[in-house]
Design a protein around this nucleic acid. Sequence first.
DNA 1: GTGCTTGTTGGCCA
DNA 2: GTGGCCAACAAGCA
Length: 274
Amino acid sequence: MPELAEAEFFRRRWHEAAKGRTIVSVHLHAGNKLFRGIAPTALRRTLRGARLQSSEAAAKQMVFRFSGAVWLGIHLGMSGELRVEPAGYVPGRHDHLALRTRQHTLVFTDPRMFGRILFHQGGAAPVWWTKIAPAILSPAFTVATVAAFLRRRARAPIKAVLLMQERFPGIGNWMADEVLWRAAIHPRRPAGALAPDEVRTLWRECRAVCRLALRTIAGQGSKLPPDLNVHIPDTWLFNHRWLDGGRCPRTHRRLVREEIGGRTTCWSPGRQKL
DNA sequence: GTGCTTGTTGGCCA
DNA sequence: GTGGCCAACAAGCA
């Protein structure tokens, strides 16, 4: 489920296992599409002997910085996960990249292969990292920028607009639905039809959902839950949206699921009106 | 067997 | 050139 907070969760998992450690060997499935544009031998050679110095998550992506000015970027796609396994772990069919330290094996696994591995060597941050839009929780994410973006995408359903990473980095399908549900805005409303106070509410709820998701899913402080089965409060739409016959936690009426903007969308008809 | 799936991209068309 | 829509990608699950 890799949206914003999941990316941060997985980043921490690798980081806490391997910070300051040296990569002693690299296993990868060369030639598959996850490595588009990367020479596997160069990646292997460069990472071997490199020490993990720092890492960062942004939107649905993360970067791990190693000694020697090495940048390893990972996008988890639809089904990607990062795991930490014992040093002697034997990579399975869907484990596309495995980095071994003396203590652990850092595994990137992705059955559907929609993810992506990126690589760069040099002092300055690579374009694939710097081009990520300013975070929703950063001061650059203002009501005015949201309003301008909605005007430009005026005829598209607001649900589809919220999924556009160029303005809402890290928002994925369930987060978009959560935001619209909290903001009481119907997902099918054209983006350009939102009143100014609705735009402000949307902006506020984008920030609230990001903040709550990071706090709840990504864990707190240095404490990292063992897996992603974290407890999400029943006051969120999240716990009700997947089930047939699920009910809105606020109105207690049946939720509706329908394809909007090419994605399955869940909303509460008692709360979100067209 | 069918019909889903938390993402992104490129091609088509207005 | 821009915006909007859709299929494709691949594998697992119910």
